[in-house]
């Protein structure tokens, strides 16, 4: 066990945890931030995507000991009131079916749009290919990403 001070969603969180624990389980089990989802645990599905600084990362592959001072943002902290342009676009397009993959999709899409505010379809597909949606909402996800891009505030 070891002590960590983590910066998560703008707050500092202290915890004593096995340093090999992936951030996914730190968030879900220790901090009760369960918006970040477990889908595969081996970097294949993207359900666990969070932001480390400005980058979208797989929290199932990120040991807590590797985080250091970097800022972590989870779906719960993406916006104050659920009004990030990507979240708004997702609601506008009524994207979800079961909804389980969507936190990961939104975290990946929001990091991607920050780097590439006007993506082509191919760029969207390339960026989002690591996020599985078992329900098959891919077309709506793509549409929502374009809607968010067009809102110019992403």
């Amino acid at each position: 066990m070891a002590n960590f001070n983590l910066k998560i969603n703008g707050k500092t969180q202290q915890l004593d945890v096995d340093p090999t624990t992936p951030m996914l389980w730190v968030l879900r089990d220790h901090l009760k931030l369960v918006g970040t989802k477990y889908g595969c645990g081996i970097s294949q599905c993207g359900a666990c995507t969070i932001h480390l600084g400005d980058n979208a990362v797989r929290s199932c592959q990120l040991p807590v000991s590797a985080v250091g001072n970097q800022e972590i943002t989870t779906i719960e902290g993406l916006s104050e009131n659920g009004d990030h342009p990507v979240q708004l676009a997702w609601m506008e397009e009524d994207v979800y079916q079961c909804g389980y993959c969507q936190a990961g999709q939104i975290m990946n899409a929001s990091a991607f749009l920050k780097k590439n505010p006007n993506p082509t379809d191919e760029e969207i597909e390339g960026a989002m290919n690591g996020n599985i949606c078992r329900c098959g909402t891919y077309l709506r996800i793509k549409k929502a990403i374009k809607t968010a891009a067009n809102s110019k505030i992403a």
Partner: peptide, 14 residues
């Protein structure tokens, strides 16, 4: 629209 939409996009425990 899906009644759980807002909860889904904000990562509520559902």
């Amino acid at each position: 629209k899906n009644v759980d939409g807002k909860k889904i996009v904000t990562g509520q425990p559902l």
